[in-house]
Design a protein around this nucleic acid. Structure first.
Length: 258
DNA sequence: ATGGCTGAGCTACTCAGA
């Protein structure tokens, strides 16, 4: 099964790029973040014509997450977290992997910049609440996949110049510690598991020629619970969509799992 | 280098992103 996560930065502005990508990469399940639209304006019919069911947790203008899926996803919910600001940032659902009931948790973590503002406090609270929920969930079901735009640079190797980001909400030590906390509950960062010292990114800013200079960062992740680790076949960051006309600033990360 | 770009909502300009 091919499960892919992609922050598309508006599903409607990106529709041609997404369709082109789907035809080439043929995901079974696509986890989308930053769809930037309400449920009623989500282009479900277009995806249905291409063989995908849509499961949407939208919001006007900002945020929003969704699943596109060939197989049906069961028990889809928007209430995994209580979001203080009522932003649409998590959608969950259940699939069967290798006869195991597996929960997919698709997340769009708050950015948190600038630091030392309420935005940063919101990110910290949001992550604390996420960790608490994951801990509970792991006790109910050992088969979890958490994926999406974490807005966290895990280590120095995961950004083009870490010194520039030491006091940034994506790289501050206390934020990276939250990421470690999730992993320490019993998960693997699948990209890093398969690529111990490789330096690749999933995001490049639109401005200042960041893409051309490869000034990027790895902030989109797949965390797979250790009970499922043996099922994982491969992980790949597909840079092709970032090179296209009118791209998202993020590029897809692709998981192959039995 | 706290934004030089992009998108939504709207129709001039602000807010947000990372």
């Amino acid at each position: 099964m091919k499960i892919i996560s992609w922050n598309v930065n508006s599903v409607r502005a990106r529709i041609e790029n997404i369709l082109h990508y789907i035809k080439n990469s043929k995901p079974d399940i696509l986890l989308l973040q930053e769809i930037k639209t309400q449920n009623e304006n989500f282009p479900s019919e277009i995806f249905e014509k291409n063989g995908y069911n849509s499961y949407i947790f939208g919001q006007k203008s900002y945020n929003g997450v969704a699943f596109l899926s060939k197989p049906k996803i069961k028990n889809v919910r928007n209430d995994f977290l209580k979001d203080k600001l009522k932003q649409s940032r998590v959608i969950t659902g259940e699939i069967i992997l290798n006869k195991k009931k597996t929960k997919l948790i698709n997340i769009y973590v708050p950015n948190g910049n600038p630091v030392d503002t309420d935005k940063y406090e919101y990110k910290k609270l949001w992550l604390t609440s996420l960790i608490k929920k994951i801990k509970i969930e792991l006790n109910l079901n050992p088969n979890l996949i958490i994926s999406g735009d974490f807005n966290i640079i895990p280590e120095e190797i995961d950004v083009y110049d870490y010194k520039r980001y030491e006091n940034d909400a994506l790289f501050r030590l206390e934020i990276r510690k939250k990421y470690r906390e999730i992993i320490n509950l019993g998960f693997s960062d699948i990209y890093r598991h398969f690529n111990k010292s490789r330096q690749e990114y999933t995001f490049w800013d639109y401005f200042a020629g960041s893409w051309q200079k490869n000034y990027g960062m790895r902030i989109d992740h797949f965390l797979v619970s250790n009970n499922l680790l043996a099922n994982v076949k491969s992980i790949n960051i597909n840079k092709e969509p970032r090179s296209k006309i009118k791209p998202s600033d993020h590029t897809p990360i692709e998981l192959e799992i039995n």
